[in-house]
Amino acid sequence: MANAKPRVVRGATQNHESTRFSLPQTEADGDWLDARGDIDGAPSPLRTTVTIERPKTIISRNQSPDVSFDRSVNPYRGCEHGCIYCFARPSHAFHDLSPGLDFETKLFAKPSAPELLRAELAKPGYVCRPIAFGTNTDPYQPIEGDWRITRACLEVLAACDHPVTITTKSDRVGRDLDLLAPMAAKGLAAVMISVTSLDPKIAMTVEPRAPHPERRLAAIAKLSAAGVPVRISISPVIPAITDHEIEALIARGAEAGACAAGFIPVRLPWEVAPLFEAWLDTHFPDRKGKVMATIASLRGGKRNDPNFFTRMQGSGPWADLLRTRFHIACRKHGLDGERDRLRTDLFRRPAGAQGELF
């Protein structure tokens, strides 16, 4: 794999088979490819396809002690940003699709999400707590520009005065300031924007279809200026690739107007691990050994730690060092405040098929 030519502007270097469901390895051919053929000997760019998914419910629940939310909405399945480290990749195997290139190119959209959301909020037993967007795949990935499902869901929440948190690595979130700013003024909205590297070359390799880091920092500034609480996430921190940027990222986030920061050491669950190693073979063969050895140090000698309380933090000397550097940088730049608590007392249950309010 060290001499393989990566696909143009895609993250994964292959359609790696699923290790859990005996998913056969899928070759990228047929109507997946642009008609232009190979470019300078490299594989043709893959076209993105979108399939409509019709779920019966849209609010997902969790009881994990490692996250601050107990419910979330994911308007899309799969993500065109193509981040090689994305822990959501394995979910594509449930659809007999590869967590590799399929995850980036075979996307699913849920246009019924706003109606399903309205119906679930209207149930008599519904208890209001913040709904998180961007917990699995990015709600502002490129196809949101056309489908606008995230925005439609925000319109439902805004009409009900329901709190929402958003995590994204796209400046497209700024398009919805007309909704987010009034919600934030009521204590109903908070955003986290992910910036994992300030180096455009590294960012383009790690997150090939995500917006330029400077555009994300500009989005932080735009949201902050509009009164929306916005945090900077530098997750995931990848040893020997992005860890040297911790202090610079925190400094730039503070300069842009972020009110707090967060980080998680890189996680490699299930099929993500072999995809990540193949990506290292292609893009960073000279430091693959160091990267994987440090990850093992963070994860109890393994490629991944699935256990509660440690999976998001890592353990051992390397984890302690990363946390120390992060906390020192946050204190220096005033980003060590507590997470904003959003209001739930303003919630008004939607009524009627059209969601009209009393």
Rank of each mutant, 00 (worst) to 15 (best):
P55R: 14
G100M: 04
S315G: 03
S44G: 12
E104H: 03
H16M: 10
I241V: 13
R216S: 06
C128K: 09
V127F: 01
I202L: 09
A329K: 12
E277F: 11
R343F: 00
A319I: 08
G337W: 08
D29K: 15
T242W: 01
A35T: 09
R148M: 14
A12Y: 03
L177Y: 02
S98Y: 03
S194F: 04
T294N: 15
D340F: 01
I328K: 03
G316S: 05
T294E: 15
P317W: 10
K222T: 12
D320P: 03
I39L: 15
R349F: 04
M204C: 08
G257T: 00
S91W: 00
F276P: 05
H327M: 09
S233P: 06
E245N: 09
E155V: 02
M1E: 12
T324R: 15
A240M: 12
K56C: 08
V206I: 15
D199S: 14
L249R: 01
P24D: 08
V127Q: 10
V237D: 10
R216A: 04
A119Y: 00
S44H: 07
A251F: 00
D286F: 14
A158K: 01
A35K: 13
T205A: 11
L188S: 02
L188M: 05
V164I: 11
Q141R: 13
L198Y: 11
L116T: 03
L223W: 04
P24E: 06
A132L: 04
F133I: 05
L157F: 08
D286P: 03
T168R: 07
D146S: 15
I241L: 15
P265Q: 11
I264W: 01
D243L: 01
R341F: 11
P65F: 13
D171T: 00
E356D: 14
H327R: 04
A319P: 01
T13D: 02
A218Q: 09
M204K: 14
G41Y: 01
S60P: 06
V156L: 04
V272R: 08
A260T: 09
L97Q: 12
F308G: 07
I234Q: 11
H283P: 03
C259N: 15
V237W: 11
L357G: 12
F133D: 02
W279Q: 10
V291T: 13
E104C: 07
Q14M: 08
T51N: 08
V73F: 08
A4R: 14
L275C: 10
F103M: 04
D34K: 13
S197T: 11
E80R: 11
H212N: 09
K201G: 13
A261S: 06
V272Y: 05
A132C: 06
